[in-house]
């Protein structure tokens, strides 16, 4: 029997005290997520509506982040863009978890030729540089919201597969799994009821870090012009349109970049803090 771990809420409270930076980052993400969900209520203007009386205006009270080349309010576009960032982040990490975790689970549990075959496929996917793979997928499928989510998700599959496999390889030798086997539990039951719940912590940490990576990847594709296509406002897309005007309208490039940076940094900080809370063995010296 393992000693009982403190309840999760108690651990989280302790974490907030011990990792205040992570806690602040979490509340920033929460605020941004609420803003993203409530964007139709919070955005002061329609993000798609051009205003030919307010072309390329500097930041002002009326337009705190300024306006773009066709007079659209940048703050409103960033609020809506953050919504897309969250959506792509969550769905693509979901895609990666849904594909990568079963692969790692099956490979680690059955070992032998199944493991060899599945991990060689994962090795092959990892051989592609992730942005290059995402570019190739988008080149084939055409740029769209769904295809960007698939492309970003597929590039993250290997990390979830490897992480799950390494967890399962160690867990399947533990006493509670042997006990379940001796009671005649099926492989599926052992994998889903006994192994997966115990392998979840590092996966949650990786998913949190993965959200930041996915948001960065989506923004990169958007900046390169192969992400979600205009007129849908995305943070990378706004930068793509603002970059040629960097000398005359630098505000178009500053605010969206700060938004991406804040989102990714916060997810990284929360991921780091969660790692300490959920997996004490990983605690840094």
């Amino acid at each position: 029997m393992r000693p009982a771990a403190p309840a999760l809420p108690a651990r989280l409270r302790r974490l907030v005290r011990k990792k205040p930076v992570g806690a602040v980052a979490f509340f920033i993400i929460l605020a941004l997520a609420i803003a993203a969900i409530a964007s139709p209520l919070l955005a002061p203007y329609d993000p798609l509506e051009p205003n030919y009386n307010a072309l390329r205006q500097e930041p002002s009270f009326a337009h705190p982040f300024g306006t773009d080349q066709i007079g659209r309010d940048l703050l409103s576009r960033i609020i809506y863009g953050t919504r897309i960032s969250f959506l792509v982040g969550v769905v693509s990490v979901g895609v990666a978890v849904c594909i990568g975790t079963p692969i790692g689970l099956i490979a680690g549990y059955f070992r032998g030729p199944t493991d060899e075959l599945l991990m060689r496929i994962i090795d092959a996917i990892s051989a592609f540089p992730s942005l290059v793979l995402a570019l190739a997928i988008v080149a084939v499928l055409e740029p769209s919201l769904l295809n960007v989510m698939v492309a970003v998700g597929v590039t993250s599959v290997p990390i979830f597969a490897r992480l799950t496999r390494s967890q399962v390889l160690s867990l399947r030798e533990r006493d509670f799994v042997l006990a379940a086997t001796s009671t005649g539990a099926s492989d599926t039951r052992i994998m889903l009821r006994h192994i997966m719940p115990n392998a979840a912590s590092p996966l949650i940490v990786q998913a949190t870090l993965g959200l930041g990576i996915a948001i960065l990847a989506e923004a990169s594709l958007g900046y390169l012009g192969v992400g979600v296509q205009p007129p849908t406002p995305t943070l990378g897309g706004i930068l793509n349109q603002g970059a040629p005007l960097i000398e005359r309208a630098p505000w178009l490039s500053i605010a969206p970049g700060v938004a991406i940076f804040t989102l990714v940094l916060c997810f990284n900080l929360v991921g780091d803090a969660l790692r300490d809370a959920l997996d004490p063995r990983q605690r840094k010296g």
Partner: peptide, 15 residues
């Protein structure tokens, strides 16, 4: 180090 990972390279380049 954390900032280096989080900052989008295209944005850093633009800045």
């Amino acid at each position: 180090a954390l900032s280096g990972v989080a900052v989008p390279s295209f944005w850093m380049g633009l800045m």
